[in-house]
Design a protein around this nucleic acid. Structure first.
Lengths: 160, 160
DNA sequence: ATCATTTACTTGATGTATCAATTAAAGTGC
DNA sequence: GCACTTTAATTGATACATCAAGTAAATGAT
């Protein structure tokens, strides 16, 4: 028995290599990081009893102003795409956070608007959400944050 | 009327600014990018009739080898955390892709193992998944890919 | 003018996720 | 040995997501 023969392998590398390629490692890293960041940054929404998707719909409608937006345009702007936009807006309407009315010119479109109550709710969340985002990203210095943003923008440009 | 007074603002900036901070922009970018990349890279799973979470459980169990893993250890290693690990494994057991047996030493733990069928299924997915990841990340050059991975690792280190 | 197509949403069926509460076994203190 | 806590996993209630199919209005083609 010579000492050139490795006695035992560390237990962690029984999987020959965790990722076949760097692209795969990046994909997993992205999903993992997004899950953690989402958890960290959406924690403060629970206090107001709305989900992340509902919050994003409200933000989109606030951004759209008093003209509101057709239902499917909200879906297009959402962070996570969903075929369930109708029921998502249903929920917000039940909570009196948005209103809907069928268009007069084109009677197929349903225009959604945020209510006063919706604006108030969003107002109460603005500061906590910004604070939570800052916390979630505290591991990076400003320049690194910019680099991360730029890299992800580039990834998205080639998607679809 | 001097030309120093701006005549009108572009319509897009009726929302004073889209993000209050760069951290918030990064958080939204992360969620958006992850959603798109997930869609792109998990598309190939549909062919085998399993979800991304199910696929990840199978990969974890393949990595664990023949000893398998206790149910909750799978949950800890998952990309996206879930309280629904029991039912996730239920589904895989129904599909005959994993087996479960209660431990003899500690009768609380349930040890999960991947079956031959599970390994075969994973084997059929390995190449498509790597290919899809490469496609999803084709917007970045190798050095940029490494930088993205490193930045996200740093973000995760400060989470929780 | 009529019919086919597209667009904008809605609905039904089914599956998956999430939270809180529960069971059962193991460890801990005395 | 007996209560007390912790750990591992399961279950029930309810919400949310997803897919396929459907409705109704508008648009386009002949």
């Amino acid at each position: 028995m010579t000492d050139r023969a490795p006695a035992r392998l560390p237990a962690e590398i029984r999987q020959r290599r965790r990722f076949a390629t760097k692209a795969e490692e990046a994909v997993v890293g992205l999903l993992r990081t997004a899950d953690g960041v989402q958890r960290a940054s959406e924690g403060c929404l629970g206090a107001q009893g709305i989900s992340g998707q509902q919050y994003n719909v409200l933000r989109i409608l606030r951004g759209a102003g008093s003209e509101g937006l057709p239902t499917l345009e909200i879906a297009e702007r959402l962070i996570e795409r969903t075929p369930g936009i109708t029921r998502l807006v249903d929920t917000l309407e039940r909570k009196k956070l948005v209103t809907r009315e069928r268009g007069t010119k084109d009677r197929r479109v349903v225009r959604c608007r945020i209510t006063r109550a919706g604006l108030t709710l969003l107002g109460a969340l603005d500061a906590p959400v910004v604070r939570a985002a800052g916390q979630a990203m505290r591991g990076l210095r400003p320049a690194e944050l910019l680099r991360l943003i730029a890299l992800m923008d580039r990834v998205r440009q080639t998607l679809d």
